[in-house]
């Protein structure tokens, strides 16, 4: 009976995951491997393609007639960042006004990323509320768990969208190359590289969406976040989800040695990535005079 309960919990969290997160790993991997029919993503690999694709960033549906002519063929081998033609990127620009508009374009792109992140926080919040017992916790503790867990969750959610050459954005409709992100001005260029390094390693664990759902719940239910008022019920909830995750991994990945232990180790790496990320955002606030941080993200990052 206990195993049946743990399986029911896994199913429940998987359903919530599918309900609240618009781009699943299954769909993302199909896009990245070129197996989703004719719908290759629009590729952003330099300033010119960013300018062309800018209007579609964060659109859930790119208008087909506008999208298609500009789509750079991803090729049968899937989406990669190579062989995409001459580099017209920021490094090639010498004109001062061109440089100025590139700077503004980068800042606008950063603001789009912030909007999507804020929407992501909303999605994660809805997912958290679906974890059995979560909404019965002290409301202040719910806030604390989200404040400390949500960036970790968003980083994990990014991994399935990435390969070594780039990442899907805009609900899977745009592929942005890693090289292009690295070519942006400091500190923008430093923001994504640690996430790529983490994701490429994380993806070798080959979790599927049902495993991911449980892992995200485990992260959210961390009883060691600073300022929690009532730790015990959180730890009890996490314990149950951990059991469910352990059973799920045994059934779903019978040949993967020590997968459960390997996954738990990733939680330590994640904390360092979030610390570095918040540090970069604080740096940005000092260096970019025109930057305004989204109020929800400000709330989350303040005193983190």
């Amino acid at each position: 009976p206990e195993a049946a309960d743990l399986r029911a919990l896994a199913r429940h969290l998987y359903e919530a995951y599918l309900k609240y997160f618009p781009l699943t790993k299954a769909k993302a991997r199909a896009i990245l491997s070129g197996k989703n029919g004719d719908n290759a993503p629009f590729v952003i690999h330099d300033m010119k393609s960013l300018m062309e694709g800018e209007q579609f960033i964060n659109c859930r549906q790119i208008p087909i007639q506008e999208h298609q002519p500009q789509t750079l063929s991803a090729g049968l081998g899937g989406v990669t960042g190579v062989h995409l033609g001459p580099d017209c990127g920021i490094l090639g620009m010498t004109n001062i006004s061109e440089q100025g508009s590139a700077d503004a374009l980068e800042l606008r792109f950063f603001h789009s990323c912030q909007s999507r992140s804020a929407e992501g926080v909303r999605e994660v919040t809805e997912f958290a509320k679906s974890i059995p017992g979560f909404i019965n916790l002290d409301l202040n503790d719910q806030v604390t768990l989200l404040k400390y867990g949500v960036i970790e969750v968003l980083i994990i959610m990014m991994a399935p969208l990435m390969n070594k050459d780039g990442t899907l954005i805009s609900y899977g409709q745009i592929f942005m190359t890693r090289e292009f992100l690295k070519s942006l001005r400091k500190p923008f260029c430093q923001m994504m590289e640690p996430k790529f390094e983490f994701s490429v390693k994380f993806n070798t664990l080959e979790l599927d969406d049902s495993d991911m759902a449980l892992f995200l719940a485990v992260i959210i239910l961390s009883g060691d976040r600073p300022g929690l008022l009532n730790v015990k019920p959180i730890e009890q909830l996490q314990e149950t989800v951990l059991h469910s995750l352990e059973l799920q991994l045994k059934l779903n990945h019978p040949d993967s040695v020590q997968l459960f232990a390997k996954l738990l180790q990733k939680m330590t790496d994640l904390r360092q990535i979030v610390t570095d990320h918040v540090h970069l955002i604080q740096l940005l606030k000092k260096t970019e005079v025109d930057m305004c941080l989204h109020p929800l993200l400000q709330e989350i990052m303040k005193d983190l």
Partner: peptide, 20 residues
């Protein structure tokens, strides 16, 4: 509570849209 106003809103309003 004031410090995390939007998070509180997100947690408490399950159906009403929150202005993000």
């Amino acid at each position: 509570k004031e410090k995390h106003k939007i998070l509180h809103q997100l947690l408490q309003n399950s159906t009403s849209p929150v202005d993000l």
